[in-house]
Write a protein that binds this DNA or RNA. Structure first.
Lengths: 373, 373
DNA sequence: CCACCGTATGAATCAGCCC
DNA sequence: GGGGCTGATTCATACGGTG
């Protein structure tokens, strides 16, 4: 067990900074009731099959590392409950824990938390602006990950900076869905060969929101699966202290160099979490869902010369061809492209034809506000 | 156990429509491998403490009905695993199940699904445009619920209408996050006193997306916690058959009246968009048989850098190797796989190169009627 | 220097049929 | 049930090269 103290602030015990070694072994040596917050990004137990090819026949670089392989659910559960129980012991009475995962593992983690006596505060959805598509067309695009925020127990009163979150979100309460891009571009750590240094590096914006919401400056944050140190980098930036545990010496080295380059800075911290609001996209299907049109209704072009029928799946049927409002509009005009929103019109009860874009504007009015990254 | 058949279509066994009685008792009497899809909105086990007051001291009408109270997690788990196991038995081999919940219960349900042998396809996030705010300012606004879509087992190939979902979403893959308003306004069922008839009525838009995505017209859908019958209402509208189980006679009465008033949408509009996968297979030899190409003709890649000759048996000859359009295309590119229909091009008399897929489409046009989806 | 285009890539339980 | 063949399938973003 090696310790390299990164933070310059007073430490309540010697081990602060990055600790290289086995997560469980190190956790067991840590003192009880000493940490304010745990953020954990454990192995997801993805259980990938063979290789996956994109439509252009290139290979997807999936996560098939040894650290993500478990014999079965029971093995994964034993591992999860062991480190979660240690974290609970290490947390201060009003401490809290975050854990992140996908449908492969998050249900098992949530169940374990409840069984161990944690008290769930929220589940939070990280909506990815740019997820990897589903290449084979077999499922919904897996466009989110789930975080669980849990207090040490039912009686705990964990930190929640309600007003900071509200200010961050343009004076609206912060919701449980967070729209944040995946980690890429210059933020993504790369090795000498230009390959990604870690397969699952999390975006700093995600950690920033977690730490801004549920810690105070000077708080001690523990990350038992430190990886390349996003938690440490953001903690240092936002003037929180941290302990990171990581088994792989290469990851430790990458994290150490990364964090050393961070300058704690209020201005930068504020810049990092600036709120923006994106105008949400409205697919045509939503117009049907709101009951503004019904399956079987007829749409027209502006001159009412072209007619198409609305199908239950929000596709259009015109002259034997079927597709989206855009593709059918293009075909009906003999063109390569078409904006279906302005091309197609619906019959209003009194006022004659109107473009379906009117309906889209109605939907937007009722869509409420979502915080964007 | 009382049965009122609502659907007019042929039923595979007597019990179709709404069944009043205990969920587990009725499930145990249902035949195995008889249902295409289960949609379940079980009790959430909300564990509300006392009453919750808004800032203006009005009381929040929370869910504190007897059916939502369980002694502890173990009791809730026993109940969950019992009805889930019965549903799994009742599902056809390629059947699937949806379940909806919040952080109070969804982790336990997901764990139970995995332990019982279900195979998770996606978790889907229902993002509410208009969630109830967090009145105390102690947590994030709980702005979503979680649905799990699970196949009966790992080998099952459940229905997924990929192309319908894509058309619905303006030609982009449907993602795992769905933005849909909560059920309110005229859609919300109310009793004679104007109070909401059911505390957790789901929006029809949510069910419509579930049924459009994962069932075909005529499929049989089972809802073991029918409530006021949103599943049945949408199933009837979209021309799916349904079985709903509900214990409370008042809910049964409300659901029955509600569904009776539904007019199924136009049958043609309910049909699914045809996917390429469902098109009949056309062997390349048929293109030769129709005289669209002749033995000896030359095919090219799009850039006319690779040339292959068409043999009389519809194999291709390229650079000494011979095989199908697919295998030769793969070899010519040095790749493991290739779709010969889109890779190989033929010389048109006037318009230059065109993919041989054009010829396949010509053949399909002459192949007569296909079975409707 | 900017516009445009081609290429690379991200926590992925990613095909279906016939022999 | 396994092996082999047919042939269906991607969105947002970053980056580098070219004009």
């Amino acid at each position: 067990m090696r310790s390299c103290v990164v933070s310059g602030e007073a430490a309540p015990f010697a081990a602060e900074g990055i600790l290289q070694g086995d997560c469980l072994e190190i956790l067991r040596r840590m003192p009880s009731a000493s940490v304010d917050l745990v953020f954990a990004d454990p192995p997801y137990n993805l259980q990938l099959g063979g290789e996956l090819l994109r439509p252009n026949n290139t290979r997807v670089d999936g996560v098939d590392h040894a650290w993500d392989r478990f014999a079965d659910f029971a093995t994964y559960d034993r591992f999860s409950r062991a480190w979660l129980a240690e974290c609970r012991r290490i947390l201060k009475p009003n401490g809290a824990l975050w854990v992140i995962g996908t449908y492969h593992n998050i249900f098992r983690l949530g169940t374990a938390l409840q069984d161990l006596g944690f008290w769930l505060m929220n589940d939070v959805i990280w909506l990815k602006t740019n997820p990897m598509p589903n290449f084979k067309g077999t499922r919904f695009t897996n466009a989110h990950e789930t975080l669980i925020w849990a207090a040490r127990d039912e009686k705990a009163r964990p930190t929640f900076n309600y007003d900071s979150m509200k200010a961050f979100n343009d004076d609206l309460q912060m919701r449980s869905d967070w729209l944040i891009p995946i980690c890429s571009g210059p933020e993504r750590l790369r090795d000498d060969g230009g390959r990604k240094a870690h397969p699952t590096q999390k975006p700093e914006a995600l950690l920033a929101r977690v730490l801004m919401a549920t810690t105070k400056p000077g708080d001690l944050v523990l990350d038992p699966f430190f990886g390349t140190g996003t938690t440490g980098a953001v903690a240092k930036l936002l003037r929180r202290r941290f302990i990171g545990i990581e088994r792989d010496p290469d990851y430790v080295a990458a994290a150490s160099a990364r964090i050393a380059a961070i300058e704690p800075c209020d201005a930068k911290a504020a810049a990092l979490i600036t709120s923006k609001r994106a105008e949400p996209r409205v697919p045509f299907g939503m117009v049907l869902e709101r009951g503004m049109l019904r399956p079987g209704d007829v749409l027209f072009d502006a001159k009412a010369e072209i007619r198409a029928q609305v199908m239950a799946d929000a596709s259009l049927m015109w002259n034997g061809t079927r597709g989206s409002i855009h593709s059918v509009g293009a075909k009906a005009q003999g063109r390569g492209a078409c904006n279906g929103w302005t091309f197609w019109h619906f019959e209003q009860p009194k006022d004659g034809l109107a473009p379906i874009d009117l309906l889209r504007m109605e939907v937007r009015k009722t869509m409420g506000m979502r915080a964007a990254a």
